[in-house]
């Protein structure tokens, strides 16, 4: 499966640095722990190196394929079809007070 595995032993992506890891971890709110950073970064570098093969392809003029089907957006009539589901929905919630979802104090 040589041609399929061409990207299989990629050069790890050098542009994925420690700072990048911390930046993305903050954007995605994934709490990282000190002990895991090193291994994580080396794995992510390999994954990113693996997908970098795509950049060798000339895709000039090609429209990105965001949707597999050539659909247009369906539009629904402006009607109220939903009823109050607060009781059911909040039965799933970890912390509710007086119908409000409670979270730690946010300071703007």
């Amino acid at each position: 499966m040589n041609n399929l595995q061409t990207p299989g032993n990629p050069k790890p992506a050098e542009d994925f640095s420690d700072e990048e890891l911390l930046r993305v971890a903050q954007l995605t709110r994934l709490g990282l722990e000190e002990g895991e950073k090193e291994e994580l970064i080396s794995t992510l570098r390999r994954i990113i190196g693996f997908v970098q093969v795509l950049q060798q392809l000339d895709t000039g003029g090609v429209e990105p394929m965001v949707h597999p089907l050539d659909l247009v957006l369906p539009l629904r009539a402006d009607e109220v079809t939903e009823t109050d589901v607060r009781a059911d929905a909040q039965a799933c919630a970890p912390d509710v007070v007086d119908g409000l979802y409670r979270v730690p104090k946010v300071i703007e």
């Binding site: 402006d78 109220v80 939903e82 109050d84 589901v85």
Partner: peptide, 22 residues
């Protein structure tokens, strides 16, 4: 009358979270 992407009502002033559908 209803929201941008759901059929929940947009009427102002309802009790908290009674007009938020799934």
């Amino acid at each position: 009358r209803s929201k941008m992407f759901s059929g929940a009502s947009t009427v102002f002033g309802a009790s908290p979270n009674t007009q938020a559908c799934l």
